[in-house]
Computed example of a mutant assay.
Amino acid sequence: MQTWKRRAKELKRELFVLYLAYKDPRVSRWLRLFTLCVVAYAFSPIDLVPDFIPILGYLDDLILVPLGIYLALKWMPNEVIAEYRAQAAELAKKEKPKNWLVGGLIIFLYVALFVWLLQFLAERFI
């Protein structure tokens, strides 16, 4: 259990490294975009797949977010990562930033899906 807690703290610290590094001009545009997506989704207050859905609800938290962090760090230049590690430790001590823009986008997707489903059902059964 201690290993899992340690890994979760490391993952959180690495997420803050990405949060700071995605604006760095030494990082390519595509990697910045990918990193921005990973960080925005991780800090989003709303998950794409809600946690109350069995198994799938925790899949994004246990697999997608760590995989995104891993890939972004793997593709990021080492000097950029080293530069932001110290700042990330300080930032991680504070409260986690919330990304309400991505949360709003996910809510919009849910509403659009619900409206589409209602229209689909109305055409089929009415």
Rank of each mutant, 00 (worst) to 15 (best):
M76W: 05
K74S: 12
F120E: 06
N99H: 03
W75F: 14
G103C: 06
E83H: 13
W116E: 05
L91K: 08
I81S: 04
Y19G: 02
Y22C: 04
K9I: 09
L117K: 07
V65D: 00
R6C: 09
I55M: 14
Y110C: 11
G68H: 05
Y58S: 12
A21T: 07
R6E: 15
V27Y: 02
P54H: 13
L33M: 07
A42L: 03
F34C: 02
P45R: 06
D47I: 00
V115S: 04
V115P: 01
F120I: 00
I106H: 00
P50S: 08
V39H: 02
R124T: 14
A92T: 00
Q119L: 12
I126S: 11
F120D: 06
Q87T: 01
A72E: 01
F108K: 02
L33H: 10
E14G: 05
W75T: 07
L121M: 09
P77I: 03
E95L: 00
N99I: 00
I53S: 07
K98N: 09
L56M: 15
L101F: 05
G104S: 13
Y84W: 07
L11A: 09
F52H: 13
Q87P: 00
F125Q: 11
L101P: 00
P77L: 07
E10S: 12
L56Q: 08
V17H: 02
P45M: 05
E83D: 08
D61N: 15
L109Y: 06
K5S: 14
I126T: 11
L33C: 04
L59K: 05
V27F: 03
V39Q: 02
P97A: 03
I46K: 05
L31D: 04
F108Q: 05
S28N: 12
L113D: 08
K74V: 09
R124F: 14
A122I: 12
L113N: 10
L105G: 09
F108W: 10
I126A: 13
D60V: 12
L33I: 06
V115M: 11
V17Q: 01
V49K: 04
N99A: 02
W116T: 04
F120L: 04
W75I: 09
C37I: 09
Y70N: 08
I106W: 00
E79Q: 14
P66R: 02
L71E: 08
R7F: 13
L105D: 01
V80E: 02
L59F: 15
A122K: 13
R13Q: 13
V49C: 07
L73W: 05
E90K: 14
D60T: 12
I107N: 06
R32S: 11
